[in-house]
Simulated scan of single mutants.
Amino acid sequence: MAKPVIWIPRHLSDATLERARRDYDVILKQEDTPGTAQEIIEMSAQADGMIPCHSEHFTADVAGRLDPRLKIIANHSVGTDHCDLNALKARGITVTNTPDVLNDATAELAVMLMLNAARRAVEGDRIVRTGAWDSWSPAFMVGKQVTGARLGIVGMGGVGRALARKARGFDMAVHYHNRHRLPTEAEMGAIYHKTLDDLLEVSDFLSLNCPATPETTGMMTSERLARMPRGSILVNAARGALVDEDALLDAIEAGHLAGAGLDCFVTEPGGNPAFAKHENIVMMPHAGSATRKTRDAMGFRALDNLDAFFDGHAPKDAL
């Protein structure tokens, strides 16, 4: 029996590609660049399944033009806001994602952003790296202490809970807002806030760990940033669309926020050039899950979903 044909538009980990080639006929796009709408449509006539990333966009228009041969889209991502799920479902196409396996890596990056913003890492690195460090005083490079501070987490899914566990190592008081309150045993002492506005008022640090949905897009407005305590820090390792970037700049420039740590932006790739002049804004290029261990785990989770589908079973992560 012929192996199913799988299109992989991005260069996944070596271990993922090795396993994929063992079990499937793989068509790998040679250029490691986002698959365009036209490429997706053309490849749907040649492949039974695909392993796209968040960079490939399956809009309603694309979904309507896919060849009937394509049966499954096994995303190499947790987020699925690049997929019109209703349009794909209407075409009978199974869509999966890779939850759980990137929780710790993304939470680690959120901690890194929080610490770097709090302790003025961008500024300090620049001072030492350029040879400008020529003095010291008790007033030099004074930052914000993380230990014992209040951490507000928006979205207590896998990443949010992983972040809460790590924050407890800094003796932080964990507060959270979620669509639904967690069971008491899962809270592990975290304090639930029914509304986002209530959470903001007690967040010395605020970490966004929720998906971008019609309800959450643009939720961090000027009014909401103003509800955060003066001198607080915003961390976003989820989706850039959650934040009104102009409002964030205003809050930074006015001194209401002491800083921000950002791994995602409204425009990706590229980010927001207006942030670059502010050394109290720490930036990473959407690298939350970028560890070797996690990249292998994401690729293997996508392949697990493909294996189940082509074996005639419901994939574990079908949406």
Rank of each mutant, 00 (worst) to 15 (best):
A20P: 13
I252A: 09
A241I: 03
A276F: 12
A258N: 11
V202E: 05
V266T: 14
A107N: 06
A105E: 09
P183V: 13
T147Q: 13
R21E: 15
D311Y: 01
L88N: 00
L242I: 06
M298H: 05
G271Y: 01
I191D: 06
V243F: 01
D48K: 03
I127Q: 11
M284T: 15
G148I: 02
E108T: 13
T184S: 13
F170E: 09
N178G: 12
D304C: 08
P211M: 04
L199I: 07
R161G: 09
E279Y: 10
M112S: 14
S232H: 01
M172H: 04
G288W: 10
D100A: 12
L12F: 15
S232L: 02
D304S: 13
V142M: 06
D246Y: 00
R150N: 14
I27A: 06
G131V: 07
L196G: 12
E215R: 09
L66V: 04
G218W: 09
S222Q: 14
A186P: 02
A260H: 05
L234P: 03
N280K: 06
Q30T: 14
G35R: 07
H11D: 13
S222A: 15
I252L: 15
M283L: 08
N103L: 01
L115P: 06
S13N: 11
P211L: 03
V266Q: 14
L102A: 14
V128C: 12
D61Y: 08
A47W: 03
N75G: 10
I8F: 08
E18D: 15
H286F: 05
V146Q: 01
T291K: 06
G169H: 13
Y24I: 07
P214G: 10
D263I: 00
D14I: 09
I127K: 10
R65T: 02
A290C: 06
P183W: 12
H256Q: 06
V266K: 14
R150H: 14
A297P: 07
E39Q: 12
L66H: 04
K144G: 00
T267F: 07
L303F: 14
L196F: 12
G157Q: 11
V26H: 04
F205Q: 01
L113N: 02
A190R: 06
V142W: 02
I93Q: 02
L66D: 03
I153Y: 13
K277E: 11
M284G: 08
D246L: 05
P52R: 03
A247F: 09
E108Q: 15
D204T: 03
